[in-house]
Amino acid sequence: MMEKDVVIKAENVTKRFGERVILNGISLEVCRGETFVIMGGSGCGKSTLLRHLIGALPPDSGKVYLLGKDLASLNEDEMDRVKKKIGMCFQSAALFDSMTVGENVSLPLREHTRLETHVIETVVKMKLELVGLRGFEGLMPSQLSGGMRKRVGLARAIAMDPEIMFYDEPTAGLDPIVAGVIDKLILDLSKKLSITSVVVTHDMKSVFSIADRVAMLYEGKALAVGAPDEIKKSENPMVRQFISGSPDGPIRFFQQKDDYLEHLMK
């Protein structure tokens, strides 16, 4: 077994929005180079957890360590230094629609480095080649399809050669082929460039094709953490239900509190 080099660590992270408990004491560790998938149903706190891991949201209690640094203790400059080492791929791609594809990808380089314009252009070409969109530099995001936008978002996220990549639902809303392309890209980036990846998804197919380890979230808690095979064999009825996608089981789909018939007669 390789010696463990933990790059992300969450300790007992709790978050409330008003009365609702979104994260209920989550602890997890992600090691360098691995692809860690966080799965779970809609509204189980996956995206919220991701936002805690990148320091976009502060936890109510508990601690998050990113690259060995306690995020809560950092000042703005130190936080910026950590942020330059991570990349985030948003669910909606979050491209800047006033800028061309090329400007979107080059933005972090233009803002954070002293590289010459020609060198930056070359980097942009290399990144767009990686996501299969070289030659699209001059287009505006509004001229692209959903899958292309996501790939541009990915190219922008890796523009600064991050050590850790975060993906928020990278395959949501894409057709199976594009979803497969995106999965392959994630896999390529993490295996060939040995980038640590954290992926939030509820797409079972991509979970089992990319994950080194999986955490299943339910009601703000990590139900099961382990290798995909372990999760597949899990005896936990909730995990089983989620993997098989069956509507009947311990996970309730109906979230109403009172009785339907009583409610009708009120």
């Binding site: 380089l109 070359t122 290399m126 050669d161």
Partner: peptide
């Protein structure tokens, strides 16, 4: 070597 390094080498070659 990161991608900006590669790009720099490409520029020099060019």
């Amino acid at each position: 070597v990161d991608s900006s390094g590669l790009a720099t080498l490409v520029e020099i070659l060019k």
